[in-house]
């Protein structure tokens, strides 16, 4: 019976570092997109005029404008930040904290008990 020892584990070689700007831009844009969704949802409750303006598709109602606006805003911000931060390193910790805050605000703004506080009676 012959025994063969397991080959030593090969550790992943250090891959070339990449500038974190493009990643930070993607995360921050997602945070801003979330905030826009929460903001538009709350604003539509607070103002019948805004609610009407956000009715882009009649069958869907204002949800079409709230979500459409958020998606457009998110993409525009992503393109702009991606351009500005291309090939650059930014303070990732700070960007991540701001992103978390913005995503949190997005969740809050889309929560009915919160946005109905602003409903025009």
């Amino acid at each position: 019976m012959s025994t063969t020892s397991e080959p030593a584990e090969i550790i992943v070689p250090v891959a070339q570092p990449k500038p974190n700007g493009p990643a930070a831009a993607a995360l921050l844009a997602a945070g801003i997109g979330s905030l826009i969704l929460g903001l538009l949802t709350t604003l539509a409750e607070a103002s019948p005029a805004i609610k009407a303006a956000l009715t882009w598709v009649a069958a869907v109602g204002p949800l079409s404008g709230k979500t459409g606006g958020a998606v457009i805003g998110w993409l525009v911000v992503w393109v702009v930040l991606g351009f500005l931060w291309r090939g650059r390193d930014v303070n990732f910790g700070r960007v991540w904290l701001v992103t978390l805050l913005l995503v949190g605000l997005g969740f809050l703004g889309t929560f009915p008990i919160f946005y109905e506080l602003f409903t025009v009676k």
Binding site: A70, V103, F107
Partner: peptide, 28 residues
């Protein structure tokens, strides 16, 4: 109807960053 739209926005950001970093992600 509102909160659901956060999912694709956040998931897209994750997918982009995973693909952007590739193997380097293991060290980040």
């Amino acid at each position: 109807e509102h909160v659901a739209w956060l999912a694709p926005i956040l998931a897209t950001a994750v997918a982009y960053v995973v693909i952007y970093y590739g193997p380097r992600l293991a060290q980040e």
